[in-house]
Every structure is written in structure tokens, then in C-alpha cells.
Design a protein around this nucleic acid. Structure first.
Lengths: 219, 219
DNA sequence: AAATATTTTTAGGTTTGTCTAAATTTTAAT
DNA sequence: ATTAAAATTTAGACAAACCTAAAAATATTT
């Protein structure tokens, strides 16, 4: 099945929102794609006619198996390109999203197969997000949310769930990136904020930020 | 200035036809782009409004300076991607055109700058065509006379100095034209005639003919 | 130079993806 | 259980890029 760029963007948007909330509603998708609810409804009808969705008018919707497979193919392309941009072209990891957003729509299976091989078929992209294989299988990467962790263990940042420019800018400011080694030294119950140690420096991050940072135990 | 994918395809099409014939007419461009004359006229009005063309209704047209600059940027992107696909991903050189056709529309100056550096800013693409630099300057590819060349190298015909009907007729007869890929398999010292391989066929050309054919190394 | 053929443009219509505004359905509140 | 609010869909338009068919301009023949 072949999709237009717009269709692909909707499929991917549904996939990502689904990851967070289980199912997706029209307004949320419209906000996510910076478009209007009416446009979303139009596209839902199209994707539904192509049998990619579980969709009943006025109800929340999800990708069916076919739709999920399509989404994973797009996610794979996006993340492989991000990996390429960072590892081969030397882009900063917080600046590759927009470009990968364009590259992901180039539709050639052989291109993606070769690109994957060229890059050594990595398991995660520069943000720590897992890269589906060509069959659509997501590698399982054991990771835990920073907000709910014992103190004073050596941790390694493995992913950041909110990849908005604002979040990435904040990460940058704190000097936190994928692979950073950090330790939680205090937990403030009042507002959920954490005192963490990174690069031998102590700083405080809000509970909101912490919720978006995923880690695994280091060494 | 930012262009749609369609606009870019028209600009590039005009550029290429211009290279061959000096100026371009509506039907030729329509054929080249597999579209219809009426569609071409529509786009000519759009590109003309954007001040990229020398265009008077019913007359042949050419890119002006601004249009040529735009075209060269697109050609640069296309050829850098072709180089990448062949040299890094291992594609056969005759299978990369369609994919590069898609990649060339990804619009990020930084991407192209970094890609160029990563590839070592090559001067020619895998077809032997010159790659414009970021300023739109086309490198002059060293052309060598066919009569004075090592054997068994893959060569590409880049120019013919004597364009008399007699010479052209002979070229035609041998199936040689600009862009033809040839290989010199033997050199007869006695009269300077050459045995060459073109389209997998072996033939002999005189030293006189060879002197009028210019080539560059192909890859 | 007039008639014919070719080329190009105009006129009007289609598709995709978008929008606003109004109508409908669902959800929440009284 | 009504009513009010929110979410969603429908209706009708618009822009980009394409099309066919007819009209206009240019080129070619006779």
C-alpha cells in the first residue's frame, strides 16, 4: 500500500498519540498536527476507507493491525534518518527532527534496507527511541521513569518522551542528553521535583521534566 | 525563496532542456515532465510571477539568473544524493535516479552542506555529471581527447569538437552521442585508429574521428 | 498571400487537502 | 431528566496542480 505525505503524517500522528493515551480523539490529533478538527475528520474517512483504522463516527479511534504496520514503517524510516543525521552528518541530536520529518516520506524499501545496513541496524535513534525492524518489531528497551526511582543509584538517560523544542532546550540547558549518567540525590515530595547530580554538578528539575526522562540502571 | 515540489520539478526540467537546446518550448517541457501542455502553461505563469523566467506568451522561454540559481541548487541536491546512494549505500549507478528525485526536494541548506562535506564535496555524480557548489558554480570537468587515453577505462563522451554534418553522421552511425559510455580496448599505433566498445559492441574508429571526440572518466 | 497545420493559451472541471461556519452527537452539569 | 457545554461531523469554499476541449496565435505550405 502506498500513502501520500499527508496520509503518512496522520498515520504517524495517530500512532504517537495512541502510545500515550491508548486511543485518539479528533481534537487531540488536530492539535498534534497543527490542523483543524474538520480536516482530521476528512482524513479519518479516507484512512478508514483504506482499512487502517478502528473508527466509528463521533468516537475515539485507533490504528488497526494494518494501520499499525504502516505506522511502524514510517517510524522506522524517521528514526533511521535521525540516526544517520546525527551519527554520520554530525547534527546535534536536538536539531534533526524536522529534517527527518521530510526524509521519512521518501518511499523506497530498498533505500531503507540499505540505509539500515549502512548504519549497522541500530536499535535506538539518537533520542533513545527504539527503531522498529523491517518487519515492524520494536526492540524492547528496559527503561524506567526518572520520577519514580530510588536515590543515589547510577542511572543512564535512555529516552526523552516529550520531544518538543521547549523540552529539548531545557535538556540542553541542564546538559542532559541520551547517554548522560545521572544520579537522583533528593526527592521533594511537595511538588515532585528532584535534585539530581549530572557531570558532578547538582541541580533541581521539576517533576514535569522528570516525568519525561527515562533511564536505565547503569553498569 | 522556497518552492513546492512541483515548482522544483518544472525548474529542473527547464534547466535540463535548456542545456540541450538553448531555450525551451511548452510541448517539449510537457513531454519531459510527462504532463500536458496546459499544465505547463499554468506553471509558466506561476514561475514567471515569481520572476524566475524570461517568458512571453506563445514564445519559447528560458530561466533568468534567479531561475538558474534555483535550478543549480536543485541539481546540486540531486547529484549529491546520487553520489551518496552509490558510494555509501552501494546502489548501482543506474538505479539511483528515481530515489534522488525524491530526496532532492528535502529542503534544508544545512543538510546539503553537511552531506557535501561528509561526501568530500565530490565534483561529479556517479553518472559523471558535474555537481554545482553551494554558490551554484559548475566545476569544469577535465575533458580529455579520446585519441590519447589509457585502455579499458570507463569513459563518457562529453563533447565533439567537429560538428560538421559528416562528423555527426559518422557519430550517429557508430551510435556515439554526448553522454555515451565507451571504453577504448585497443590502440593501433600504425594509423592511430582505436578499437572501442560501445553498447557492448566493438568497433573501430579512425584516429581522425577520435581526435574530435572528448571524454572524461566515468564512474 | 491565403490556407493549413502546429503550438500555445484559455476556459472550465477534477482531486487532494485544507479551511470556516453551521449542524449534530456525545458528555457533563444542574 | 433536561439543559448546557464540548466534541465531532457535515456543508460549502478555496488553493494547488492537474486534466480535456475549444480558442487563439504562430509557423508552414502551397
Amino acid at each position: 500500500m502506498n500513502f501520500s505525505i499527508s496520509e503518512e503524517n496522520y498515520i504517524k500522528g495517530i500512532y504517537h498519540l495512541q502510545q500515550e493515551t491508548g486511543s485518539v480523539n479528533t481534537n487531540a490529533l488536530a492539535a498534534h498536527l497543527h490542523t483543524k478538527a474538520a480536516s482530521v475528520t476528512d482524513m479519518l474517512k479516507k484512512l478508514s476507507a483504506k482499512k487502517l483504522l478502528h473508527y466509528k463516527p463521533y468516537k475515539a479511534f485507533t490504528l488497526n493491525e494494518k494501520g499499525t504496520k504502516a505506522a511502524l514503517a514510517i517510524v522506522r524510516r524517521h528514526r533511521l534518518w535521525e540516526y544517520f543525521l546525527v551519527e554520520k552528518l554530525g547534527f546535534d541530536w536536538d536539531k534533526v527532527h524536522a529534517i527527518a520529518e521530510e526524509l521519512e516520506h521518501v518511499s523506497s524499501d530498498e533505500l531503507i534496507t540499505r540505509l539500515g545496513n549502512y548504519l549497522g541496524n541500530p536499535q535506538t535513534d539518537p533520542h533513545g527511541d527504539p527503531i522498529p525492524d523491517s518487519e515492524g518489531n520494536l526492540p524492547v528497551i528496559a527503561q524506567v521513569n526518572l520520577a519514580a526511582l530510588p536515590l543515589n543509584k547510577q542511572l543512564k538517560v535512555s529516552a526523552v518522551s516529550d520531544q518538543s523544542p521547549a523540552m529539548l532546550e531545557m535538556m540542553n540547558h541542564y546538559g542532559i542528553s541520551i547517554g548522560s549518567r545521572i544520579k537522583v540525590s533528593r526527592h521533594f515530595a511537595f511538588d515532585g521535583s528532584l535534585e539530581i547530580i549530572i557531570n558532578k554538578q547538582t541541580c533541581i528539575i521539576s517533576g514535569q521534566v522528570a516525568k519525561n526522562i527515562f533511564v536505565h540502571y547503569d553498569k
